[in-house]
């Protein structure tokens, strides 16, 4: 596995906002993410269709027509959201520099979120059941005063996620406040 861990020295004099350059997430991450959403959507559609057309408690015809339209409408809506989600996840990237870690995200609002390592309280590598199947992990970074918004880099190869975590934990400023 190729090691994409970057550890550039920050050059303050000539650094630009682009200087933390976005490394894309694992290639299959956006696909997997979309696939999970599609499967979930399909299950919900199936349940809805079974409920509408089941013969045990038959619905009146009019109600059935309305229910079918609602199902179609919602399906189209969520399909669009999934499509959007696919491109949004594809647009995400990250960069680890010597002193900070940056997350790039957003299609309409493009955001560059930078977390100085000396302000990190703790750091977690999380893996859900799907992540475990496809060998991915999420890196959660916590600093003080951000209950509402955690800093999360999804779709990292698990060895990469672990090595980033270890690299950050080994940072001298993390040693200070343990």
């Amino acid at each position: 596995m190729e090691n994409t861990f970057s550890n550039h020295i920050l050059q303050f004099d000539d650094s630009q906002i682009q200087s933390p350059e976005a490394t894309p997430l694992a290639e299959h991450y956006a696909v997997v993410n979309a696939a999970v959403s599609i499967v979930t959507l399909l299950i919900i559609i199936t349940v809805a269709l079974v409920a509408i057309f089941q013969p045990v408690w038959p619905m009146p015809d009019e109600a059935r027509t309305v229910a079918v339209y609602i199902t179609i409408g919602l399906t189209a809506f969520f399909a669009l959201i999934i499509l959007y989600g696919y491109f949004a996840e594809k647009a995400k990237g990250y960069c680890v520099r010597e002193q900070d870690i940056t997350l790039f995200k957003g299609l309409i609002f493009r955001k560059v979120i930078t977390q100085p390592i000396c302000r990190i309280q703790h750091i977690e590598v999380k893996r859900g059941p799907v992540d475990r199947k496809v060998n991915l992990a999420k890196l959660h970074v916590y600093s003080a005063g951000d209950i509402a918004q955690t800093f999360e880099i999804p779709g990292l190869d698990v060895t990469l996620a672990n090595s980033i975590r270890n690299g950050i934990l080994a940072h001298k400023d993390m040693q200070h406040h343990g």
Binding site: Q115, A144, G145
Partner: peptide, 14 residues
């Protein structure tokens, strides 16, 4: 004392 900073731009803002 800053903990983190976010830099954001919409398409129009860019």
């Amino acid at each position: 004392k800053i903990q983190r900073i976010t830099y954001s731009q919409s398409w129009f803002m860019r």
